[in-house]
Amino acid sequence: MVTATKSPAPETAATDAAEPTARQAAVLDAVLALMQEEGGQLTMTAVARRASCSKETLYKWFGDRDGLLTATVQWQASRVRAGRYDRQKLDASSLRDSLTDFAATWLSVISSPTSIALNRVAITDAASKEGNLGQIVLENGRFAIGARLKPVLEEGRAAGLLAFDDTEAAFRTFFGLVGRDVQIRLLLGDALRLGKAEIARDAAIATDQFLALYGRTDQKPAAA
């Protein structure tokens, strides 16, 4: 294992926590790797050693351990995309593609060994009430992902493609259709394996189920 050393040149903090520099991303990946290997026994010293940087650099970039954990969760959650589309040309096909893309990336993230390890540590942390990782994961994981997708659902409603009264309820329905029992099974040690083909299939099925519940077949613009 490499001994932590001072950085040879000044390094500045990222301007956006969700878009770290390549060097900062390497540090966040080191945090995820350590969680996977060692669980909740995570120290700034261990991260600095694994990432081959100084603790001073970590404190400069992330503030403290909670700041580092927050950035790590944001980094992991940033892999979940809500899809790209032209809001002026949103139609049934592009809406379905956007929702399917979200579903596939979310399934890929939650089934990864790093996410499983991160969530296990967060659950233990929340139960012990000795740290803030549980709340950090909620705010920067589930809640942040919801904030990312809800505008897509609302754009679909505005375009006359979806019909629902409560955005949060619609999001939770979609979230449930996508996730099913996958995350809890993985957290409890089930040897469930999701390859790209299985993830693509399940994402498409969940999206079609959601559209069957909330899709508007007339596709007329919603009333102002």
Results as ranks from 00 to 15, higher is better:
136 I>Y: 02
164 F>D: 01
36 Q>H: 11
204 A>G: 02
19 E>I: 10
124 T>M: 11
193 R>F: 10
21 T>V: 07
9 A>P: 00
69 L>E: 12
139 E>N: 14
205 I>E: 14
72 T>P: 04
64 D>H: 08
80 V>W: 02
217 T>E: 08
16 D>P: 03
172 R>S: 12
9 A>M: 11
195 G>Q: 07
122 A>V: 05
188 L>R: 14
30 A>D: 00
182 V>A: 13
35 M>P: 01
177 L>M: 15
73 V>E: 00
102 F>V: 10
220 K>G: 01
170 A>W: 00
91 D>Q: 08
21 T>Y: 05
202 D>E: 15
58 L>R: 02
195 G>R: 04
199 I>D: 06
33 A>S: 13
113 P>Q: 05
52 S>L: 10
168 E>A: 13
113 P>S: 08
71 A>T: 06
57 T>D: 04
45 T>F: 09
73 V>I: 05
14 A>T: 11
51 A>V: 11
43 T>D: 02
37 E>W: 07
2 V>F: 11
37 E>N: 09
1 M>G: 15
13 A>N: 04
222 A>T: 15
165 D>A: 08
62 F>W: 06
23 R>E: 13
165 D>T: 14
54 S>C: 07
192 L>I: 12
176 G>T: 08
58 L>N: 03
217 T>A: 12
61 W>G: 04
133 L>M: 12
63 G>E: 09
93 S>Y: 06
171 F>S: 10
218 D>W: 02
165 D>N: 09
201 R>W: 04
41 Q>P: 00
182 V>C: 11
77 A>M: 07
